[in-house]
């Protein structure tokens, strides 16, 4: 998928995890100082990010998030790490389209090797 869409999707995904951690009782128990309006601020930020995505991608992300909590999944050794099913070999990391897992439907991304 285009790099900019991938970056926005990853930011959105990390932000959604941040929101769910903030609401986690075991996180609250650790005792970090959190501003009162924190979750409202985060929700506003995630909605702003959602608007930066093409409408159909944003819609797919929201549907998948409701279904699985984790709407996007990495590919490793030709496996979707969302559902752990082997992916057809014709799926390509270089595709400029959004690629979804044929089994679970999650939006896929390929981890880039460092170095």
């Amino acid at each position: 998928m285009p790099d900019i869409i991938e970056m926005h999707l990853k930011l959105l995904f990390d932000l959604d995890n941040l929101i769910s951690d903030m609401e986690e009782p075991s996180y609250k128990k650790i005792g970090f100082q959190i501003e009162e309006e924190a979750s409202l601020v985060l929700i506003q930020k995630r909605n702003d990010l959602l608007k930066k995505l093409p409408a159909e991608v944003a819609q797919a992300y929201e549907i998948l998030k409701k279904r699985y909590r984790q709407a996007i999944a990495p590919v490793e050794s030709e496996f979707c790490l969302g559902c752990f099913q082997k992916l057809p070999t014709q799926l390509s990391a270089r595709s400029q389209q959004i690629v979804t897992c044929p089994n679970c439907g999650r939006i896929l991304y390929w981890r880039k090797k460092e170095g």
Binding site: D14, L18, M22, A38
Partner: peptide, 18 residues
């Protein structure tokens, strides 16, 4: 690279909350 910047972005959002 991009991975580091993604992490920095999320960390700074966390810092904005407190």
């Amino acid at each position: 690279g991009n991975d580091a910047e993604l992490i920095v972005s999320t960390l700074l959002k966390r810092e904005e909350l407190g």
